[in-house]
Design a protein around this nucleic acid. Structure first.
Lengths: 202, 202
DNA sequence: GCCTTTTTGTATTATTTCGCATAAAATAAG
DNA sequence: CTTATTTTATGCGAAATAATACAAAAAGGC
């Protein structure tokens, strides 16, 4: 098989290029001409391979989500304590948010909400991504309870939502021009505060 | 004075119309044709009165900020306790975030980050708005310390940032399609958790 | 009543953008 | 070698978009 003319473009590379562009400009402000350059393809090939602009954006978001899940899995599986694991994960997230100049924050949180109303499917993708993070954080907190690091009365779902709120806020703040140092501080203090309130318990 | 031909449009009404449109579609996806209809003006008048699209967006954001400050001031000045005031403020914010169908969340948090890189002045506006909220929340927490409702070792700046993180997350979640009830619950639990961790103190 | 000033509204222009039509190129199958 | 299949690449065309030019309209100042 692999019948016709072979593809010239690298799908992985094309998606990465598209993702980078969307990350900077958002969905609406990115033109297909810009995408064609960034993906090293010409427009007809893009339509053929991926579909319209919304479809490319959603693929980029999916690509981003997969990288994020890898990162969370690393936090999970390393033998670190809950606190140490969260420190490491947030540090890594901050590195990603500041990986460009100027800092772009989080692709999903900083660009998807703007597009979510005009593009309901993007809204669903965003909702699913947020739900996924809630679940992953909650699983990690639950594990800490099972291992006796947190009291049984701790509330994993609430802690998870508060952790994600912290992450989202850091993403927006990074893109708005706040310093990396101040956000690292915010991350550590917030994690400590959330864990301590779970520990003492209201 | 008031020399030339009188203005036909209502500046307040025009700004409200522009704000509504930007709130739904964001900066990039909103065309000047759409704006002209929403503002009940024709394009040349818009350029004359407000300038280009970025300038209109920034004016809309300023308009939004003023409404937000009013809301925070109300929370401040009423005789309510810190917790009750925060409950009321977050309830009101959630009502705003769900005021349209579908819910649009927060104009600033949901649409400005996407535009912030291509429009650096919008980025500065966003940063200033976030800083303003940090300050206002911190002032309120400080007042609670002065009045003996929180121990002196509480950290107003951290609590303020965590409160704002909660607010921002609720804004994004509202726009992504989560239910109003779940976000009210999240608000209350988060406020309680933040205040309790300030009360006990790490 | 005339002049100045400011806004309005029609129209225009140049550019961008999306999406596709069409033919050539490149490969596998028979 | 011929045919079928898939992708590439040039380019087209219709629509949308931003921004401005220009004359008419509507007010105040003298």
């Amino acid at each position: 098989m692999a019948r016709g003319r072979p593809r010239k473009f690298d799908e992985e590379l094309a998606l990465t290029g598209a993702m980078t562009l969307f990350w900077e400009k958002g969905l609406a402000a990115t033109s297909l001409d810009d995408l064609a350059i960034a993906m090293r393809m010409n427009r007809p090939s893009i339509y053929n391979a991926f579909g319209n602009k919304e479809a490319i954006y959603r693929r980029s978001l999916e690509h981003y989500r997969m990288q994020l899940e890898q990162s969370m899995l690393a936090m999970f599986q390393s033998g670190r304590s809950l606190q140490a694991g969260l420190y490491a994960f947030f540090d890594q997230a901050i590195e990603v948010y500041f990986g460009n100049n100027p800092p772009l924050g989080c692709l999903a949180i900083c660009t998807a909400p703007s597009a979510a109303v005009s593009h309901p499917e993007v809204g669903k993708d965003l909702k699913a991504l947020i739900a996924l993070l809630d679940t992953r954080f909650a699983e990690r907190v639950l594990k800490a309870i099972d291992e006796g690091d947190l009291p049984a009365k701790a509330q994993p779902k609430l802690a998870a939502q508060m952790l994600q709120a912290t992450l989202q806020s850091i993403a927006v703040r990074a893109r708005s021009g706040e310093s990396k140092a101040s956000l690292r501080t915010l991350a550590r203090y917030s994690i400590d505060s959330i864990l301590s309130s779970e520990g003492t318990n209201l």
